[in-house]
Design a protein around this nucleic acid. Sequence first.
DNA 1: CTCTTGTATGACTTATTCATCATATGAAGT
DNA 2: ACTTCATATGATGAATAAGTCATACAAGAG
Lengths: 102, 102
Amino acid sequence: MMNKSYKRFFRTLANVNRLKIIHFLQERGAKNVTDIVEGVKLEQTLVSHNLKRLHECHFVEVKQNGKERVYSLNKKTIQPLLALMDRHVNTYCVNCKEDDHE
Amino acid sequence: MMNKSYKRFFRTLANVNRLKIIHFLQERGAKNVTDIVEGVKLEQTLVSHNLKRLHECHFVEVKQNGKERVYSLNKKTIQPLLALMDRHVNTYCVNCKEDDHE
DNA sequence: CTCTTGTATGACTTATTCATCATATGAAGT
DNA sequence: ACTTCATATGATGAATAAGTCATACAAGAG
């Protein structure tokens, strides 16, 4: 069990901005950075930093298109992963009282 | 999509000590705190803190047994989750060059 | 070859998370 | 009631991660 890699992969998902990006790409399909920035309402540099991180973990793929870069989800992993978490969260966190203050 | 909850759940998994505990419970079945402490070779207080966190997220269950507390995995979520991550990590992180320095 | 548009990078500051220590609680036994 | 064994909790300093700012790079367009 490669704990370090696991940690990195989970940590990448443990961030609201990256989750926002994932969610956006899931709903709207492949998009370039500008569209993502507009869609998730975050700064361009922040989006780029986070896309980089997501890409390093292979949660997203890139394709150059002229001067744009089009990002899309690696659905093979992300889809079932989010489905699992949905089930878990909805089962156990229906009305999450925990210190979810942020 | 409840980003906050997702974040919390993923963050709980994004920690080597908690992953160690999960791994230990997965291999050895239900165990009390003392056994876990011995098995994962971490301080008792650290183990307790982490068990608490895992429990809050319902990744583990507890059962009082005399003065012991016996913890076990919530296999319904953890098993498929780890299976998914295994596949992902092994596919994409075969020889992970990334800044996995720790 | 300069300008513009789109995107990435690096350095730095701040915020979050972790590990540790001291201490508390709780159940049984005497 | 006191002691012991098993486990939990709270506070705090240390480590890690996140966001921001300034700037760089890259690909066309003119």
